[in-house]
Design a protein around this nucleic acid. Structure first.
Length: 197
DNA sequence: CAGCAGATTGACT
DNA sequence: GTCAATCTGCTGC
């Protein structure tokens, strides 16, 4: 198993990392149940200077405190009071950069993902969208702060999967961010059916 | 403390 | 296409 280490997550360029995470494999293991999926869509959130980020101008709240942890920590928060969204904290401790995982392609534990999502059979909506993939993989805001390097519950592997072209464009749902809403901080795998429309 | 908007999703007209 | 679900944080009284 080739688990990604601190060195990778603590790279200074969160936009580079958002692109580099495409094709990597997000794995969770809760109560001995292993589920995983290949990352096919991400977005970069560049901390203090990014109007779309929860940590814009180094804002600190109980929720965003985890973004100031060292790169390689999970930041999971509740959106619209309903959906748990999974992010990877990057850069060194004190710099609140993060990559939002927006979609994965299911690999292992598909039966368990169907149960968690209350679905009778697999379809492309199983892990498409940040709220959906988090539910399918069993991710919950109570796990925010988990180390992706030292825990045996949430981690990311490099399985050297050969992927096609990666495209980029503006982020989704951040219209409130003014000119920062136009930045090409969203990355996705070309022609992958699990990427949001 | 009330009001509102938000890194969303799924059910229904 | 419209709208409800309902937690977190910010603004203004």
């Amino acid at each position: 198993m080739n688990k990604i280490n601190e060195k990778f997550y603590q790279h200074k360029d969160v936009v580079y990392l958002a692109q580099a995470l495409i094709g990597k494999v997000l794995v969770t293991c809760f109560d001995s149940i292993l589920t995983s999926g290949m990352i096919v869509e991400t977005e970069a959130y560049a901390g203090a200077g990014d109007k779309a980020s929860h940590a814009y101008e180094n804002r600190r709240t109980a929720r965003t405190e985890i973004m100031y942890a060292p790169g390689g920590t999970a930041y999971i928060y509740l959106c619209y009071g309903i959906h748990h969204l999974f992010n990877v904290v990057t850069h060194r401790e004190g710099i609140p950069h993060a990559v939002l995982i927006r979609a994965v392609e299911p690999l292992e534990g598909i039966e368990q993902m169907l149960q968690r999502r209350n679905k009778p059979a697999p379809d492309y909506s199983l892990t498409r969208g940040p709220g959906s993939l988090s539910k399918a993989l069993g991710l919950h805001k109570s796990q925010s702060g988990t180390s992706l390097c030292n825990s045996n519950t949430i981690w990311i592997e490099d399985r050297q999967i050969l992927v096609g072209p990666v495209l980029s464009g503006p982020r989704i749902g951040v219209g409130y961010a003014g000119e920062d809403a136009l930045l090409p901080y969203r990355f996705w795998l070309k022609d992958n059916r699990y990427v949001s429309k």
